[in-house]
């Protein structure tokens, strides 16, 4: 299913200290953008994708795609991608709640590939939702 350069992983979202601290400063500042557009993966998986630690990857789900920076962490098991809560990752999350009212924000299967794009810009994500431009 997943050859070199393209990997199927399970997406886990959650709170991180950096996201939590920066969200109450401003969601328009760089610290926050950085926090929510940086994901963590197992070093072995990063090697499979073929990007350096700190490189960029595209994450694609049936509902959308984003570009984020990837950081290596041996605390993340293989086949898992962790990314803090925020507008970036919510581009990927299914809106269907399966009759519960809550979308499945953990455990979604997504594809990751190396990216030559820039990291998703938080402000334009916001503006595209609000129909601002």
């Amino acid at each position: 299913m997943s050859g070199k350069g393209r990997l199927k992983v399970v997406l886990i979202t959650g709170r991180s200290v950096k996201q939590g601290v920066s969200k109450d400063v401003s969601k328009f500042f760089d610290e926050y953008s950085e926090a929510i557009t940086t994901c963590e993966m197992n070093p072995a998986d990063i090697e499979v994708i073929g990007v350096p630690n700190g490189g960029y990857i595209d994450i694609v789900s049936p509902y959308g795609s984003i570009t984020v920076q990837v950081k290596s962490s041996s605390d993340i098991p293989r086949g898992v991608l962790f990314i803090p809560y925020g507008i970036a990752v919510n581009t990927l999350i299914p809106p269907d709640t399966e009759g519960t009212g809550i979308p499945r924000s953990k455990g979604l299967e997504v594809f990751v590939t190396p990216s030559n794009k820039r990291v998703s810009d938080v402000r334009s994500l916001i503006e595209s939702i609000g129909g601002v431009r």
């Binding site: 969601k27 925020g86 299914p94």
Partner: peptide, 19 residues
């Protein structure tokens, strides 16, 4: 802040209605 924390496909409806 639902714009940040709800799935994009759900909040896209905010394009169409007053907020």
């Amino acid at each position: 802040d639902p714009v940040s924390h709800l799935p994009r496909r759900a909040v896209e409806h905010l394009n169409n209605i007053p907020v």
